[in-house]
Amino acid sequence: MNTFRIITIILISLFITKLTYAKNPSDLINEIVNQASIVLSSDDPVESKIIKLNDIAERNVDIDGIGMYTLGKYRKSISDEDKSKYQKLFKSYFLKSFSSRLVDYTDPKINVVSEKKVSDKYTIVNSVLEASKGRPEVKIDWRIYTKNPQKPLIRDLMVEGLSLARTQKEEFNSVIQNNNGDINSLFKVLEEFIIK
C-alpha cells in the first residue's frame, strides 16, 4: 500500500510539473514578440540587434525541421553527408534572412487574437501586425509544432494566408530542378547568399 501511495505521489507531482512547464502557443508568440520588440526599439547597433534576434530565433524556431521541409522531394535522395552540410548552410541562411527581414522594423506591434489546435502536433496562432506609416494591417498566422508541449517551436509563418515555408520550399526546389537535380547548385546559392 505504501508503495502504491509513493507511486501515486510521484505520478501526481510529475503531472503537476508537466502542467507547470507546458507552454501555451499564444504565450510563446507573445513572449517572442515582446522580446523582439525590446531588441528592435533599442538603441543598440544593427549588428548587436541581429545577434539578439538570431538568439531568439534559435531558441524558438525549429530551424532543422523547416530546413528538412524546404528540401521537398529531394529530402529522400540526399546523402547523409550532404544532409549535414545542408543543415549547417540552411541555418546560416535562415538566420541571416530572418534578421534582415525584421531589422527594418523599429517597433512592430503584433497582437495575438486567437489560437486553434489543428492536430495533436500543430496549433495555429492568429495575430495581427498593426498598420503603420502607410503599411496596411497584416494578418500573421504562426504554425506552432506542439509535439513536445514543454518546448513548442515555430515551424511556419503565414502572412495573409501565404506560407513562408511553402514559398521557401518551392524556391529551393526550383533552384535544384533548374540545375538538373544537382543539390550542389542549392549549396552554391546558399553560400553566395550567406557571404553577401
Binding site: L162, R166, T167, E170, E171, F172, N173, S174, V175, V189, L190, F193
Partner: peptide
C-alpha cells in the same frame, strides 16, 4: 534566392 519562383509560389 530565386525571385521568379518565390513570386510564382506566392
Amino acid at each position: 534566392l530565386d525571385l521568379y519562383s518565390s513570386v510564382r509560389s506566392l
